[in-house]
Design a protein around this nucleic acid. Sequence first.
DNA 1: AAAAAAT
Length: 484
Amino acid sequence: MAGPVGRIRGRALGRFPVALPVGELSNLHLKEEKIKPDANGAVVKTSANAEKTDEEEKEDRAAQSLLNKLIRNNLVDNTNQVEVLQRDPNSPLYSVKSFEELRLKPQLLQGVYAMGFNRPSKIQENALPLMLAEPPQNLIAQSQSGTGKTAAFVLAMLSQVEPANRYPQCLCLSPTYELALQTGKVIEQMGKFYPELKLAYAVRGNKLERGQKINEHIVIGTPGTVLDWCSKLKFIDPKKIKVFVLDEADVMIATQGHQDQSIRIQRMLPRNCQMLLFSATFEDSVWKFAQKVVPDPNIIKLKREEETLDTIKQYYVLCNNRDEKFQALCNLYGAITIAQAMIFCHTRKTASWLAAELSKEGHQVALLSGEMMVEQRAAVIERFREGKEKVLVTTNVCARGIDVEQVSVVINFDLPVDKDGNPDNETYLHRIGRTGRFGKRGLAVNMVDSKHSMNILNRIQEHFNKKIERLDTDDLDEIEKIAN
DNA sequence: AAAAAAT
């Protein structure tokens, strides 16, 4: 192991002095001319100041040579799996290996450990120091499903809360009702050692009285309700929000997603509000848009080949029509109910049809789609979380973010396609990411029912450059194989 | 096509 670099010195990173190797390291930053277009052709900006004095040039060269040395000594991540681009040239290239290093408030650190986290995950190592820096830094961060993004931004929100101030200081948007509830629970758990901390859910079904004011410190919600509460209904004063989080950020700012409402909400926030965007996927055009709407962003980006999780085995089943898909699914039922499974359909109609048909065959399944009442939706997802339901038939409403550890199989009864019928690679990755959480093994089975859908699957395969193997559901040995 | 929505 290489010796220490620089000297350890306190530094005002975050609200508390942080011990970190500053000295030479503090001069380390990525130069604009070093940044090349990434694999997707996007060029990312890192440094605001263009002109440099001779002195600065010299410092830059020294910093670069130190960086090279550090890389040789493996002190800096040189695997190139991720690109971490920091905006502030004066902040050190820095990642934490323990939660203690972040100098979190004690009650927050207590919450972290109470949740069973021991060491920061990869994304947490890199994102937390940036998010907790002083002054607050904006961040656009990409990390695979099930790698701890939620805990990362929840920590960022909680560390900014001043409980004495009885008004919303942090706002987090989720694309769906179920995900908002889930993220809310994480906030509550992680913040449970702040006795005063209050959280408000701005979601459908939560009715407030006219003229009422939200005095909770953190608001978690879905875009439509949050926008209403901020504008027309005036329940929330957006002017005092310090941290704005977009979870599943790509779908939140996509034109065909929740762009309208999200941007309208963003415009109501104060200019110096910290913006944090997190997702496992950022399709090229959305990535560019994200960099336009986030001022001076820091960036954590995955290379295409690192987007998929190797722990998730992917298969396809070849059928000729919907009835054959149904039969194949019935053959699989025994294997998938060893643990829990999620079955995705393209429409609400197909989902409810499929749930009904499986029930008729004597297979117990639960159904969850956006056409149901929110109370019912909350009850179903709760039963699924508790393991009272083994199989959940659903639509894209559950494609993103839903974290049920026992889910070991994801079935795409219909392949994910967008409104033009093209393969929806991002949704594919999110769907299969409902399994294989936190390094666990997972299985994805795609049901192909025509030449057309085989073509879609092939294009998904090519996009991720990942082999999807054929599975024969009439062969019991094969099914045995997937059941482990 | 789904989701969001006190319209």
